[in-house]
Nucleic acid binder design. Sequence first.
RNA 1: GGAACCAUCGCCAAGUUGGUAAGGCCGCAGCCUGCAAAGCUGCUAUUCGCCGGUUCGAGUCCGGCUGGUUCCUCCA
Length: 467
Amino acid sequence: MMQIFDSVTKTKRPFEPINPNEASIYVCGPTVYDDAHLGHARSALAFDLLRRTLEALGFKVTMGKNFTDIDDKIIKKVEATGKSMQEITGYYIDRYLEEMAALGVRRADIEPKATESLDAITAMIQTLIDKDYAYIVSNGDVYFDTSKDAHYGEISHKVHDDDENLSRVTHNSQKRNPKDFALWKACKGEEDICFETPFSSGRPGWHIECSAMIEAHFQGTDEYSIDIHGGGADLLFPHHENEAAQSRCATGHELAKYWMHNGFVQIDGEKMSKSLGNSFFLKDALKVYDGEVLRYYLNSVHYRNDFNFNEEDLQTAKKRLDKLYRLKKRVLPGKGSVVNNSFKEKLLEAMADDLNISVALSVIDEMIASANERLDKNPKNKALKKETIANIAFIDELLGFGGKEPFSYFQIGVDETLKEKIEALIAQRSEAKKNKDFTTSDAIRDELTAMGIAIMDTAEGTVWEKA
RNA sequence: GGAACCAUCGCCAAGUUGGUAAGGCCGCAGCCUGCAAAGCUGCUAUUCGCCGGUUCGAGUCCGGCUGGUUCCUCCA
């Protein structure tokens, strides 16, 4: 039984989907005005793990992740660069998908964009106006009236207004209540990007697009539109609170049965932010580190915890992944047989417990140690080799790592010229070793070490790895 | 100012319903090796930020304190 920590009730709850054996998930995607950073990666990775786990447990998963492609920041970028909105958003969407693919994140089944969902957005706003949950002010802006929703605040538990807060958000608006938020922003000038609607010419507010897209793309039931709504911890308020309110008032039922939020990424103990100058863009990380190693590292801490990114821990994570690939080298070539049942069950049990990745990784480490031990005792254990191949394939399917050909894994970043040089040196060393000329063979090994190449002598000959 | 979360070995990090501390990295000893590396074996927290309380028994529950982070404003 899958257990999910629901951020609204703040408890682990058994996952009982609204439709038997199916799971509908909607995750808030990026606003596409800039490159994705490690925080985007972590969120994408966390929900990729959720999706894979649910699928492994037998659920038919439908995953949606949106692209916010109308937004103040995008408009600013249009003004700053002179490029069209489509050029900008198209570029960053492509980059996002490319970079997430490098991390092994599977594409969502539904990837709606705000610009392609204007009918649904307009319809939902019109419904809210008709039902008197929303109002139009003189300049054409449309606001949601939070005082009309008795359940407003129940998602984030932020019910009470204190005077301090009121003074911060009230001014400069024709809002009826301080917490009311914009569903639709009317055109302010020629520079604006505007769409025609019955209420005014303008563009959607941030929160409404998710609600509208969920209604447009998911079936839902009388009680809920989707099973799980996810996103970064910062989205809980106001974004998800507002989404929940709009959907509740427009549809008459709750938006999601479970709400999940992932923790933040910090860099060397500090919040990642532009003002601190320590934003770590994924594209830069991928220049230095292999995508699979990054995936392993970013997923190695439970999704709800804050994640402190640093080089040292990443190298430690790589060492752990290396061990899996070294085992894979020992058991290949050959075809996999059947996954060890107890191993599979332990892995699934760990992941079913609100994605307990730490336990899952320890189960894998124990499998690796056990297989190595038995292989030491009996290097020709074919059945074990075949089972291990199957075990690793299962890890790749469930957790998304371990799928590469092991020799190429250890040779990432080594070009053909260098490779030939390394292999020539190894051949020379083998020759020297054969002649018991250990002075020469050790000198060659030192030379390889200086090149960042580690070698190891095995029964099948000398193999090498890029350190 | 209001609210939430977190604090476990040198480092990273599990530990729902209280019952006597997973796993990885590092380190030490050994096996293997020409020597290494890799792999394997063994060792490495009587203790879970601090102080009280509840209990036969608490890392796990309650109260207080200290430290860190986050949200309340665009944000994964």
